[in-house]
C-alpha cells in the first residue's frame, strides 16, 4: 500500500533475568501509519514466528491506554515521543519512513528485566500493600452521601487517582525514582476525608517500602510529570513531602 513505511528497529533482547542481553536489529517492512506501535511489533513478531524464532516479548493487555501494562522506552523516552499517551496509543504515523527506532525496557533496579522488554513492576504492588488503602471491611460502612466532599477536593483526588501504575515516571526519571507514583497514591487518600484516620501512618509506611525497593530519590527534574501518560502533576510529590515531614515531626504514629 502506498504511504506504508519501512523501519529499522533496534530492540533489546534478553532471554531471562540472568542473561546479559543486547540489541538486535530488525526490519519492520510495509508498516501502515495507522498501526499502533504494538501492532507494528505484532507484525515483526509474526515474521519471527514464521521463521520459528522466539518473538520479542513485551507486556501489554488492554491496548486502550488504561491498564498500564504496556511500557517500552522508545527513542529515549518512555511511551515514545508523544505526550499523555501510553505506548499502545502511539501510532506509527508519529514516525518517519526509514527511521531507526531504539526500543528498550524500563531500566531500574526495582524493575528487573524478566525477558526482552518485559520488566517486573511488582515493587509497585508491594508499596501499595504497605498501606495504600483505607482499612474498612466489607459491609457496615455509612451511606455514601453521609460524607460531603467538596467538588474541588474530589476532583483533585480523582486527578491523583488516574495513575495507571505503568512505571513511566520511574523510567523517565534520571534517578529511577518512584516519587510520582507513590505520591499519587498517597495523595488520593490524603485528600479525601475517608483517608484521614490513617493518613500519617500510610505515608510513612509507603515511603519506607518505596525506599526498601531500591528506587532512587527525587531531585525535582520534573521528567516524570512530562512523561506521565495520565499527566499526574508533581504537586502530588510536594504534598506527600508535607505529609511525610509532618508525620515525622509532629505526629505520634511511627512505623
Amino acid at each position: 500500500m502506498s504511504g506504508n513505511m519501512n523501519l529499522t528497529l533496534k530492540v533489546w533482547r534478553q532471554a531471562n533475568a540472568s542473561d546479559k542481553g543486547g540489541f538486535v536489529t530488525y526490519k519492520a517492512e510495509n508498516i501502515s501509519p495507522d498501526m499502533s506501535f504494538l501492532e507494528m511489533l505484532d507484525v515483526v513478531n509474526e515474521d519471527l514466528l514464521k521463521k520459528g524464532t522466539d518473538p520479542i516479548h513485551f507486556d501489554h493487555d488492554c491496548r486502550e491506554g488504561i491498564c498500564g501494562m504496556c511500557s517500552l522506552y522508545i527513542n529515549g523516552r518512555p511511551h515514545g515521543p508523544k505526550r499523555a499517551i501510553t505506548t499502545c496509543q502511539l501510532h506509527m504515523r508519529s514516525f518517519k519512513d526509514g527511521e531507526t527506532i531504539t526500543i528498550e525496557p524500563w531500566r531500574a533496579t526495582a524493575f528487573p528485566v524478566i525477558k526482552d522488554l518485559a520488566v517486573d513492576r511488582s515493587a509497585f504492588d508491594r508499596i501499595q500493600q504497605a498501606g495504600g488503602y483505607v482499612s474498612v471491611n466489607t459491609g457496615g460502612v455509612p451511606d455514601a452521601n453521609e460524607i460531603a466532599i467538596p467538588k474541588v477536593i474530589a476532583d483533585e483526588a480523582f486527578n491523583s487517582a488516574t495513575c495507571i501504575q505503568c512505571g513511566a515516571c520511574v523510567a523517565a526519571c534520571k534517578n529511577a525514582s518512584a516519587m510520582l507514583f507513590v505520591s499519587a497514591k498517597v495523595s488520593q487518600l490524603a485528600l479525601l476525608p475517608q483517608g484521614q484516620p490513617e493518613r500519617y501512618r500510610r505515608v510513612q509506611s509507603m515511603v519506607a517500602q518505596m525506599d526498601a525497593e531500591g528506587f532512587g530519590g527525587c531531585t525535582n527534574t520534573g521528567a516524570c510529570e512530562i512523561e506521565c501518560p495520565k499527566e499526574i502533576s508533581m504537586t502530588n510529590i510536594n504534598r506527600m513531602r508535607r505529609d511525610f515531614f509532618t508525620a515525622k515531626l509532629f505526629k505520634e504514629e511511627e512505623i
Binding site: P142, D143, K151, A154
Partner: peptide
C-alpha cells in the same frame, strides 16, 4: 446500593456536585 457505600468508604473518587454529594 451497598456497593456504592462500600466503594465510597474505600476512597473511590466518584464524581460529585458542588454541594459535595454524589
Amino acid at each position: 446500593v451497598n456497593i456504592i457505600d462500600q466503594c465510597v468508604a474505600q476512597g473511590v473518587p466518584f464524581a460529585r456536585e458542588y454541594g459535595g454529594l454524589l
